[in-house]
Amino acid sequence: MIFGAFRESIDTASLRDGSMPPEVIAQHADLPGTSIVSTACLSGSQAFASAFLENGSHCVIGPDGYPDGADAGLFIHLLFHRLLRCGEPLSQALETIRSYDERLALFIGRTAPRKPPGG
């Protein structure tokens, strides 16, 4: 698990309408081989995920919409429970949690496309 810090070059001047746009993330993301979990609204969108995936992250999980704050907290709690207590792999934990109800199904996972052998 990596809890990193933002680069000093990223500050509130990079925000647009209170959010960090994917193109700014793409300029600074450098987390090869990591899985990104975000509870920020729309952070499960293809644009947000691509900002990390195109810079080496292997998976991005986030809501493809606007989760209620309580649902976001519950999602994180359940994710760590499924990973740490139940020993499930990330993809299985995500699918289990998404099956609980439509509010938790808002959280989706996106992965980098697999490269063909020799490609």
Results as ranks from 00 to 15, higher is better:
Ile2Tyr: 11
Phe3Met: 08
Phe3Ser: 08
Gly4Glu: 01
Gly4Val: 04
Ala5Thr: 13
Arg7Gln: 11
Arg7Tyr: 09
Glu8Ile: 09
Ile10Val: 12
Asp11Cys: 04
Ala13Ile: 02
Ser14Cys: 15
Leu15Pro: 04
Asp17Cys: 14
Gly18Lys: 13
Ser19Val: 14
Ser19Leu: 11
Glu23Gln: 12
Glu23Pro: 00
Ala26Pro: 02
Gln27Met: 07
His28Met: 05
Asp30Val: 02
Leu31Ser: 04
Leu31Tyr: 10
Gly33Cys: 09
Gly33Ile: 14
Thr34Arg: 08
Thr34Leu: 14
Ser35Arg: 10
Ser35Cys: 15
Ile36Gly: 12
Ile36Glu: 05
Val37His: 03
Ser38Val: 02
Thr39Met: 14
Thr39Ile: 15
Ala40Ser: 11
Cys41Glu: 15
Cys41Ser: 15
Leu42Pro: 00
Leu42Lys: 10
Ser43Phe: 00
Gly44Asn: 03
Gly44Tyr: 09
Ala51Arg: 02
Phe52Asn: 05
Glu54Leu: 03
Asn55Arg: 15
Ser57Trp: 07
His58Trp: 06
Cys59Asn: 00
Ile61Asn: 02
Pro63Ala: 05
Asp64His: 06
Asp64Ser: 06
Gly65Trp: 03
Gly65Val: 04
Tyr66Gly: 04
Asp68Asn: 12
Asp68Leu: 15
Asp68His: 13
Gly69Pro: 08
Gly69Arg: 10
Ala70Glu: 09
Gly73Val: 11
Leu74Lys: 09
Phe75Glu: 02
His77Gly: 12
Leu78Ser: 04
His81Leu: 15
His81Cys: 10
Leu83Trp: 06
Leu84Asp: 10
Arg85Ile: 10
Arg85Phe: 01
Arg85Pro: 00
Cys86Lys: 15
Cys86Ser: 14
Gly87Lys: 09
Glu88Asn: 03
Pro89Ser: 11
Pro89Met: 12
Ser91Asp: 15
Ser91Tyr: 01
Ser91Lys: 07
Leu94Arg: 05
Leu94Lys: 04
Glu95Ala: 11
Thr96Leu: 05
Tyr100Phe: 15
Tyr100Lys: 07
Asp101Arg: 15
Glu102Phe: 09
Leu104Gln: 01
Leu104Met: 05
Ala105Ser: 14
Phe107Trp: 04
Phe107Gly: 02
Ile108Phe: 00
Gly109Phe: 03
Gly109His: 03
Gly109Thr: 03
Gly109Ile: 00
Arg110Met: 10
Thr111His: 08
Ala112Tyr: 06
Pro113Glu: 12
Pro113Arg: 14
Pro113Thr: 11
Arg114Leu: 13
Arg114Val: 11
Lys115Leu: 14
Pro117Cys: 01
Gly119Phe: 13
